[in-house]
Amino acid sequence: GSSASRMLRNQTRGERVCLTVAHLDSLVLARCGFNHSADYRAVMAFGTAYLVTDPEEKERAVTAMVDRFFPDRTASLRQSSAQEIKATSFIAMEIEEASAKVRAKGVADDEEDYELPIYAERIPVRTVLAAPEPCPRLLDGVTRPATLNGYSEGRLLEDALRDAYFVEYPNG
């Protein structure tokens, strides 16, 4: 985030924080309103956060952030300037506790409700990549690197990200 962010600047004291992430997999329509639901994956992590202040550690964080999604990309990029690193804040968090929950049941009606003439379904939710849109100001002869082939039109984002993760961290 921005170094000007008040919320990020206030993490310098080692505040206790909770980080929550949820991913919606589907909407579930049952035969009874009580059984309508959603399939999801969620994690809640608790720990102590601190602001990363060392410029070299911040540079490593930029590299890790970019290369996690696009393996080895930073090797081909212009190096971030000292001012860009200074203008960027990173928060690190020592995870002390975490819990995860997954709901992947789909339609789960009461047994007697399956005999009712009521429509029920699971509606999967997906994030699908669209066709890449090259920058209109690319120099002649600059082509899309083969390392981006995993980010192709019609591919699920989660598949592209998973593949990139295992390239960057082969022992996952």
Rank of each mutant, 00 (worst) to 15 (best):
L19M: 05
F90M: 03
D72S: 11
D25N: 12
I95K: 04
D67T: 04
A22L: 06
D54R: 13
A22E: 06
Q79Y: 00
K86G: 12
S99G: 14
A92Q: 15
E59D: 03
F90C: 02
S81K: 03
P55A: 13
P71D: 10
K86Y: 08
K86Q: 13
R60F: 03
E96K: 14
T88N: 09
P55Y: 06
R16P: 08
I95Q: 01
S89H: 08
L29N: 02
S26G: 13
L19V: 13
M7Y: 01
C18S: 15
A61E: 01
K86R: 11
G33A: 07
L27A: 13
E84D: 14
C18G: 15
S26H: 10
A38L: 12
T48C: 07
A98V: 07
I85W: 00
F69T: 01
L27V: 13
R31V: 02
V52Q: 03
A30M: 15
V66F: 04
R41C: 11
A30F: 11
M93N: 10
M7H: 02
M65R: 09
L19C: 13
E15K: 11
L77W: 13
S76M: 10
C32D: 15
E94S: 09
F69I: 00
M44Q: 15
A42G: 14
R13I: 15
A22R: 06
S76F: 01
R6K: 13
T88D: 11
S99V: 10
R73S: 10
S99D: 05
T74H: 01
Y50A: 07
E56R: 14
A87Q: 02
S81W: 11
R6M: 02
R60L: 04
Q11S: 14
A61F: 05
D72A: 05
F46E: 12
A30R: 03
E15S: 14
V66R: 00
S76V: 02
E94G: 00
D54C: 11
V62R: 12
E97N: 02
F34V: 11
A49H: 10
A75I: 03
L19E: 00
I91F: 04
K58L: 09
A22H: 04
V28P: 02
V17S: 01
F69G: 06
R78Y: 11
T53F: 02
T63P: 00
Q83S: 13
P71I: 11
P55M: 12
E84A: 15
A30Q: 11
L8M: 09
H23R: 05
